[in-house]
Amino acid sequence: MTATETSAAVRQGDAPPVPALRTHGLTRRFGHHLAVDDVSLLVPRGAVYGFLGPNGSGKTTTIRMLLGLLSADDGEVELLGQPMPRALARVLPRVGALIEGPAFHPYLTGAANLRRLDASDATADPATSSARIADALARVGLTAARGKKFRHYSLGMKQRLGLAAALLQPRDLLVLDEPTNGLDPQGTREVRNLIRELASDGTTVLVSSHLLAEIEQVATHVGIMSAGKLLRQGTLAEVLSDGAAVVRIATPDVEKTAALLQQLGLQGVQPDPARQELRARLGDAAPEEVARAVVTAGLRLRGLAVERPDLEDLFVALTGEGFDVLQ
């Protein structure tokens, strides 16, 4: 056995499973504008990966590069362990995609549009085509509208048809760019359930969105983009814990409590005597220990709460409060 073979065998034994999607240093310029800057995504198998970022942050450009629609100036993409775009023809049949909104032939019916896509797929069994199209339409609740021309579809129906197209074949990975765009609350809920259902069947889902509450409900992992850069990535819990927890204490003894908290080593103590409360970053301190210290010091404690930022707080903290498109 040669050295390489040995290491290969060893690696195979305890190697983590190949991620569904991995990029390394992905970069793309449009003229002088750096649309995607050194992005290294890691989407483990079975994850529901929330791909977040404000408008114009490079999410869609990244997705287009993942799927071989745009060439990368630099960096690598691996889909299902295969290099893209080299293995495009082999890999993409296992990948369903909804990219920057649905697009279909307006003068064809919903079903005819799906037939067109299915006929284009060399890996689709013609014998099961009708059944799979009917299934996909049923799954997104479009059975009744199957014979309607696409141009007469509402925005929500168009979005559903886009999802149906992504579900024509069994997929290992679904890339859904803003899947709930234009959907009513019921539709949004259905899409959320659909994503959960697909994920529980073992499909990896990359879903881009700026509806953070939506993502927080379904995602196991998140990545946050801003101005072309991937700012944070990891499991939802990991990324959320990046945002420092804050302890809020209500007490009439604001000044003394502030001094005590500083003694305990808490950072960023902000006394607010007018409201009779103060805030401080919790850091490594346990909230119950803080409470005990306050009480032991003979200070009056009216209330103590620990606030963890939700995804939206974190998102705004990372990507900025402003309404402007970042350049």
Binding site: G68, P93, F104
Partner: peptide, 11 residues
């Protein structure tokens, strides 16, 4: 129409 991107990702 945008259908080209879907044709290319079928693929």
């Amino acid at each position: 129409l945008g259908t080209l991107r879907y044709l290319l990702t079928v693929p």
